[in-house]
Amino acid sequence: MLVGSLRAACALALGALALAPASAALAAKRTFVVTAVEPKGGANVEKEPFPAAPLPEGGGYVLKKPNEEGRWEVSVYVFDPRQIFVDEGDEVTLQFVGVNGGSHPITIEAYGQTFELKRGHVNTVTFVADKPGRHSIICSSHQPTMISELIVAPKK
């Protein structure tokens, strides 16, 4: 009887462990490269007319009028990636690389980070993702397009 009870107790304990929620996962060290880029497109007025309506206001959009040969261009400043997903408690390192645009004044307000990113330079910031939710990474001179989101998933 004692052996049977012991087996039953062990089976119950193992079953409870299997169903129990995992304890808080160990924090991970996460590194992301975030590039400041300017995708461009262009055409000639003979094949595509120059847009009549202006683009939305802000330094994030650039629309260049046709030159002497009739070529016009449109570009937009963005971060790549646009969204970064991490878990609460992760140690996050963001390496910002300036590719296009001479200067990008960047702020990650939720984590008290403010710096200027210049073309050809790398700025690295590291912090613990201790604030669950969506947090903006903003270049103030290229709005409304140069915004990325840091999404911090809460611990379960």
Rank of each mutant, 00 (worst) to 15 (best):
V37R: 06
S23P: 02
A27H: 03
S103G: 00
L117P: 08
G120A: 09
K29H: 11
P105H: 04
R82F: 09
P56L: 06
R30Q: 13
E57M: 05
A22T: 12
F85L: 13
Y111G: 01
D90L: 07
E68I: 07
E73L: 09
V86F: 06
G41Q: 07
L94S: 07
H104A: 03
V37F: 01
V86Q: 04
E69V: 12
A36N: 08
G112F: 05
A28L: 12
V33C: 00
A52K: 15
P81M: 00
S23V: 14
R119Y: 01
P21M: 06
K29L: 02
K29R: 14
L19S: 10
P51S: 01
E69H: 09
E38Q: 15
V99E: 14
K40L: 09
V86N: 04
K65E: 15
V99Q: 14
D87T: 13
P105Y: 02
E46D: 12
D80W: 06
A28V: 03
A43Q: 06
I106T: 07
G41N: 05
G120Q: 10
F32Q: 08
P21Q: 07
A24L: 13
A110K: 12
V33E: 11
G60H: 11
N44K: 12
K65S: 12
E73D: 10
T35R: 14
A110M: 07
I84Q: 03
I84M: 10
A25M: 07
T114S: 15
A22M: 09
Q95G: 00
G112T: 02
Q83Y: 09
G70D: 06
V33H: 05
E88S: 05
T31W: 02
G112E: 13
P49E: 10
F115R: 06
R30H: 01
Y61Q: 04
E68G: 03
V76L: 07
G112I: 04
W72I: 02
P39M: 05
S75T: 04
A52D: 14
K40M: 12
A43P: 07
V76W: 00
E69Q: 14
A27P: 11
P49R: 14
E57S: 14
A20P: 02
E69N: 12
Y61H: 12
P66M: 06
A52S: 15
D90E: 08
G102H: 03
V33Y: 04
F32E: 11
P56M: 06
V62S: 08
S23T: 14
E109M: 07
D87Y: 12
L26C: 01
K118M: 09
A28T: 07
G98L: 08
F115L: 06
E88M: 03
E116R: 15
G41M: 13
Q113D: 00
A110I: 07
A25C: 05
V78P: 00
Y111T: 01
P39H: 04
G89R: 10
V97F: 10
K40W: 11
I106S: 01
I108E: 02
K40G: 00
E57D: 15
K47I: 05
I84R: 04
K64L: 14
A27G: 14
V74D: 00
P49D: 09
V97E: 14
